[in-house]
Design a protein around this nucleic acid. Structure first.
Lengths: 340, 340
DNA sequence: GGGGGAGATGTGAGCGCTAACAAAAGGGTA
DNA sequence: TACCCTTTTGTTAGCGCTCACATCTCCCCC
């Protein structure tokens, strides 16, 4: 049954010989060319099956000049956000018939991004999605390889790259307004690490909503996305008099803050209300369940692929696109009017 | 400065012309062939730089018959476990000079895995890592493409594939023994979804440790990895008299259980001790901080690449390898002797 | 019944690179 | 000085596929 006991796997010519046709006819069958007699097609398909032939996409790519592979550059895919983005991107790409070649960077710096783009370019990817949440990635994107379309996810808007992102500013506004609507005088903020665009957006939305309502803007507490940093910030807030509401830049830090409050005997939401950001799967089961802002990572992934494919199809006459995915407010039990 | 204003990017021949050498000499420079005069090399490198030449790896792969790309097939990379594995694999692969092409499956079924392997084979990957935690993936691996080396991570041991995995049985034993050592009469278990090998391993270790100590083995409660399923199981346990210790098959379900206990007024660890599995970054900040079993996903990723590369180098005379990574017990605050 | 056009198939070239061999250029020794 | 050997460079032939074009077949219609 398996005639592929030879050294090399069978090639198109082998199939052609076996089916008694030319290699070109085999190629036609493989590419669903309409002008092939049904009977011939059947014979070719049978030969393919018997030989266990598998087409060599590398050879195909050499002549067609495209690989049907997209490159994805991302940062620490262990984090829920990036992981979800990459997952969404991969699903969308495969649905569109594209493969995905991944490069996960340990740190996002200009050189790292540039190298990654260079590698992917050598590999001949047709397009690249860069999950570039940090500001320092922007320069590398700006002077990116000019002949390969690039889409940035959660990135800045330098250069020729199109951008798809969640509306961070609006998300933060939603969070803060909710707290103000509950009657809180002001809202404190545990921020993410500097240099992240999302951090800036969330901070901006927070400040904006506060100022818009004519409320005092407390100083933001630093964090680094980790639960531990949220814990530390939580301890500080617990020791600060007058704090009744906190907007935390992500759910993991919110978890840490919740823990700090629990340890200090500060009851949530009776004494302090907490709102997170991301809506990770765990948030619903925190103690108490966390009110948060949901980001639709799947939608971001799908849009980024859409934008990229549109540009691939467009050839020369494309224009920079900017696509914004709206966040959603998710009410749970970690928020309440001040004083319980 | 950029002379690449033409339609097509420059090729090796362009560099050769510019440097006044043959294309083969350019190739030699690019491949670090020793027999090239330093002065010639410099001239070639300069031409490369001026032209912005980038070598076409597709053409290279066509003749060398290898792509320096590894395929990774995984299941839902949104979950912490798979995401960490894939990250570890990608890092290790890139450190070894390989690229990674990803396929994330929504569900692991035989057909899905077989398709994924087929696609990757067409792409010409040099080897494949399959993160195949489900039993149903095994058949597809067993009759996998014979001419491409495959390594399974957390997979069964059918067919010719080498396997790298964490010792789930031992991990579960560690958890249960810890609870027994604290003085608990027996330990209940919230299991993961059926068909997962990890679930079977953890259940086996649990039962094993219990039977080894001559303790009664309660019926395991079903779960599906999600916090919600842990919550449901937790509610049942809270309503069951005599429960003083639970070993939960992963940290997310443990979180759900913790929440259920909190809602029912069952204090942890005073009334019920809880041990999880995975040690996700959040566990340390649960209420209370979760005692759990840590899996070293990075090590698993590294080992899988090692095994794969070893086999790539070995050519014909390879032998199936089986690599087991030990789990580690992490003590926190969710366990205590029975009765507080 | 012959010309024309559509459909089905075959032929040759070449994508950009490396492998294998060929040829030239130096350099020491008898 | 001739010889051989080493180092450096060039030449040629594919890798397995698709594209463009050539060819052949068949059938329809005037």
């Amino acid at each position: 049954m398996n005639a592929n006991r030879d050294r090399r796997p069978p090639v198109m010519a082998d199939v052609a010989t076996k089916a008694g046709v030319s290699h070109q006819t085999v190629s036609r069958v493989l590419n669903d060319h309409p002008n092939v007699r049904a009977e011939t097609r059947a014979r070719v398909l049978e030969a393919i099956h018997e030989l266990g032939y598998r087409r060599n996409m590398v050879a195909r790519a050499l002549v067609t000049r495209h690989t049907r592979t997209l490159g994805v550059v991302s940062f620490d895919t262990t984090l829920y956000g990036p992981a979800s983005m990459v997952y969404g991107i991969e699903q969308a790409a495969r649905a569109a018939g594209y493969f995905v070649s991944m490069v996960s960077l340990k740190t996002i710096d200009t050189a790292g991004v540039r190298d990654a783009l260079g590698y992917l370019a050598e590999q001949g990817v047709d397009g690249i999605v860069v999950v570039a949440p940090q500001r320092s990635a922007a320069p590398a994107l700006a002077d990116a390889i000019t002949d390969i379309p690039v889409v940035a996810v959660e990135g800045g808007h330098d250069g020729d790259v199109s951008v798809v992102s969640v509306d961070q500013v609006e998300g933060a506004r939603l969070a803060v307004r909710h707290l103000l609507d509950l009657g809180h005088e002001t809202v404190w903020h545990i921020a993410g690490p500097p240099d992240w665009l999302e951090v800036e957006g969330r901070r901006e939305g927070w400040r904006d909503a506060l100022e818009g309502a004519g409320r005092p803007v407390p100083e933001a507490l630093p964090g680094d996305w980790s639960p531990r940093s949220g814990y530390r910030a939580g301890l500080r807030l617990a020791a600060t008099p007058g704090v009744t509401a906190v907007f935390v830049a992500n759910d993991q830090m919110a978890l840490g803050a919740l823990r700090a409050f629990a340890e200090r005997g500060v009851r949530v939401p009776e004494q302090i209300s907490v709102v997170g950001f991301d809506d990770i799967p765990e948030s619903e089961f925190f103690t108490p369940p966390l009110t948060t802002i949901r980001q639709d990572f799947g939608a971001v992934g799908r849009h980024s692929i859409e934008v990229l494919l549109r540009r691939l199809g467009a050839g020369a006459e494309w224009s920079r696109e900017r696509h914004v995915v709206p966040p959603r407010f998710v009410a749970r039990a970690s928020t309440a009017p001040p004083g319980g």
